[in-house]
Nucleic acid binder design. Structure first.
Lengths: 216, 216
DNA sequence: GTCTATACTTCGATAGAC
DNA sequence: GTCTATCGAAGTATAGAC
């Protein structure tokens, strides 16, 4: 306890995040993870037992963190629409901070939950649950039109993950001059998404940012 | 020419689609592809040369087909908003017909374009190009507000791909009773997405389905 | 064009000393 | 807890007969 004992497990998880994000479960190499983490491969097995267990542990942590932040947003006192803005901000910030997050999430969806055990699936589902709660509350308050919370979740998370994960491809395409010279800035895209969600959730199509003046 | 000669290449591509969609490039096994296609592994190499070349060929075909259908929609004479509805329908139909399509597309985005050569990247980019053209035309006509075509593309394609690709996970979650008992139907979700896109693109927030009655 | 057998490589995992 | 050495399975690809 005196000395700041080895933090091998954390270093391994960081290295695993980087490795799994670029190649997925099957593309990841245990040797590379160990090398990146600057630990011996045997050490990795000593701590995590297997490649699969390491993978699950990593994903559980990622999803738990995202869900936790969303719950914090939901526990705040902002108005429903502002809460959704905040939720998008929070996820976007997390995703840009940990660039491994969007690719890993997308791939796990594409994978159909193979590799995952029950605990990890629970952690994964806690993300839509936390966001859905925010939407459901807005609907109950009449601030949103009656939208299915899970539909709203997909409409929000998918563009965010795909746009952020596609950054390398966009770069490649623009380098190869394969696409028009008008790229979209990340911040612009996030603002666009927030606007889109507001429009999607607005209870009355005629009601803009302005308060409804109880016309009639 | 007399007899309907072997269609090995096509059978191999079908088998490859199934195999690559579940495991990605690294998870796919050449042996399994050959077995599914009921051809010998050597035959597969005879026709395609390598696992990577087979993969690229497959992706090029998928993307080309999607882009082609989008171009057909764009060449029609529907109004811009209806065209976007049609575009969503077309992609959704293709994705449900070929269930391998959404997972493969998501994974390739997550992969950041590794495994892809220039031709395949071109084919991939032709999809956003075709959809972007529809949006750009709507903007030019004043039927849509000035939205970045690529932003619009991501807002449309991402929920569609993610929602459809997530079907296995949703099933698993509901089987395990990990999620509320109010699932969303696929058709409902597509309708939701079409509505969301209409709201996103509407030039005037006060303008509903009704014609603007030049109030003021 | 088709098939069998196999070469060659890579990778996940462990044994066993310290 | 840490490291070296290595096993054994699995996987891509090819050689060569028909």
């Amino acid at each position: 306890m005196a000395r700041p004992a080895t933090v091998s497990p954390d270093r391994i998880l960081s290295a695993a995040a980087a490795e799994f994000s670029t190649g997925g479960f099957d593309g990841a190499r245990v040797d590379r993870i160990a090398r990146r983490a600057k630990v011996n491969k045997a050490m990795l097995y000593y701590h995590f037992g297997s490649k699969q267990r390491l993978y699950r542990e990593l994903l559980r942590r990622i999803f738990a963190q995202v869900a936790e932040r969303l719950r914090q947003v939901g526990a705040g006192d902002a108005e429903p629409a502002a809460m959704v803005d905040q939720a998008i901000d929070v996820i976007a910030r997390l995703a840009r901070e940990h660039t491994y997050f969007p690719p890993i999430m997308l791939r796990e969806i594409a994978e159909g939950g193979t590799h995952l055990d029950r605990d990890t699936l629970t952690a994964l589902s806690s993300v839509p649950m936390a966001f859905g709660a925010i939407v459901a509350r807005g609907v109950a308050l009449g601030a949103f039109r009656p939208v299915h919370p899970i539909a709203a979740y997909f409409t929000m998370i998918a563009p965010l993950m795909v746009y952020l994960a596609a950054a390398p491809i966009r770069r490649e395409l623009s380098d190869a001059r394969l696409v028009n010279p008008a790229p979209i800035d990340v911040d612009e895209f996030i603002a666009h998404l927030q606007q889109t969600m507001r429009r999607m959730l607005a209870p009355d199509y005629r009601d803009a940012a302005a308060r409804p003046r109880t016309r009639r």
